[in-house]
Amino acid sequence: MATISTKELTREFLDGIYDHPDGEKVNQCLQCGTCTASCPTSEVMDWSPRQIFAAVRAEMLDRVLGSNTDWYCVSCYSCTVRCPASIPITDVMYLLKNQGIKHNLMPRGTRGAKLSKAFCKIVSKGGRSAEFGLMMKYYFSTNPFAALGNLGFAMKMLGKGRLSLGSEKIKDVKGLRKMLEALEEISA
């Protein structure tokens, strides 16, 4: 359950988006729907991108965060380049994902969040991403049996020499971790 009020959520959201170039433009949404019309995945979203901006204005972000909308954003930036109010809409979607994770306000079992979390764990640990480890982590947190469905593909990639079973580490892992810890201290 949310421990943060919807008013506070809106304030936190605005504070975050103002840290992005053109972020203040969110207040100038015309409700024209160009974003929704440009979105390749809007048809599977609970709330359309246009409705997000209406929800921000109505301080109803809790409902948006409880939906699948932001997690279906594919980061194609089609909405962003077409928005007549120049709102950085894709950045808005990232920020909503950040908030959904932070306050645990997502639909149960959001697979996008599980994949992203697995990715962050690997990168925060060694500094680089590794596909095999990422997929193993992801499938174990969702449906281990689904991994079997991709076995053929994995074998093909392995046969081509394109699948690394190990993990990649940078030299200054220590420095990288200190850097990430410094940010955790600021936000705490």
Partner: peptide
């Protein structure tokens, strides 16, 4: 190191 690609941006854009 990793550029901070979209999956990382989804979790924590500062990091």
């Amino acid at each position: 190191n990793c550029c901070g690609a979209s999956a990382y941006l989804s979790i924590d854009d500062n990091k």
